[in-house]
Computed example of a mutant assay.
Amino acid sequence: MHGPASFGWLLVALCALTGGYCLLRMRSAVEEQRRSAGDEALMGFGMAVMAVPAAAVAPPRWAWLAYTLVFGVAAVRALWTARTSPRHLHHLVGALAMVYMAAVMVASPGGGHGGTGPPLLTGVLLLYFAGYVLWAGARLIPVPVTAGVQVPAPRILGWGDRPELARACRLSMGIGMFAMLLTV
Rank of each mutant, 00 (worst) to 15 (best):
L121A: 15
L79F: 09
G110I: 02
V145I: 14
M98W: 03
C15L: 00
L24Q: 05
G117K: 02
A55D: 02
A107V: 00
L24T: 09
M47K: 00
A51T: 01
L165F: 05
R77N: 11
M1G: 06
A41V: 13
L120G: 07
V73K: 10
R61A: 08
S108Y: 02
L92W: 07
L96C: 10
G114P: 00
R167V: 12
F178E: 01
S36G: 14
P152W: 08
R25L: 11
L181T: 04
A37F: 07
R87P: 07
V124M: 15
L127K: 12
I175L: 14
C22K: 11
A66K: 03
V52Q: 01
G131P: 08
G3Y: 05
H2I: 08
A166R: 13
F129C: 08
E32K: 13
W80K: 08
S36F: 14
T116L: 06
T146M: 08
P154V: 06
L89N: 04
M101L: 09
A56F: 07
E164S: 12
E40Y: 15
M105E: 09
A37C: 11
G38R: 15
R155W: 05
G160D: 07
L89M: 09
H91T: 13
H113L: 01
P118R: 03
P4I: 01
P59S: 09
C169Y: 05
F45L: 14
M26S: 14
S172G: 02
L23V: 15
H91L: 12
V76H: 04
A97P: 03
A168G: 11
G38N: 10
G3L: 06
P59H: 06
P154E: 01
F178R: 03
Y100S: 01
P163Q: 02
R87S: 14
Y128F: 15
P118D: 12
A74D: 14
C22H: 15
A103C: 07
F45S: 09
G3A: 06
T122L: 05
L10G: 13
A5G: 01
G174I: 07
T18F: 00
G38C: 13
A95T: 03
M98A: 02
L89W: 15
T68P: 00
L121H: 07
R162W: 03
A56Y: 03
P118M: 06
R167N: 14
A179Q: 07
V133W: 05
V149L: 13
A29V: 10
S172Y: 00
R167E: 12
F71K: 10
L126A: 09
A136H: 01
Y21M: 08
P60Q: 03
L92G: 05
S36Q: 13
G131R: 04
G117A: 03
P86A: 09
A29S: 13
E40P: 01
I156T: 13
A48I: 03
A97I: 06
V70T: 12
V70P: 08
T146S: 14
G117L: 02
E164V: 10
Y132M: 09
Y67V: 08
L14K: 02
L96T: 02
S36D: 15
A95M: 04
L140D: 06
L165K: 03
L134V: 15
M180E: 04
T183C: 05
S28R: 13
V70D: 12
G44F: 07
M26Q: 14
T18S: 07
L96P: 03
A63W: 13
C169G: 13
M173L: 15
G3D: 06
H113R: 04
H91A: 14
T84N: 11
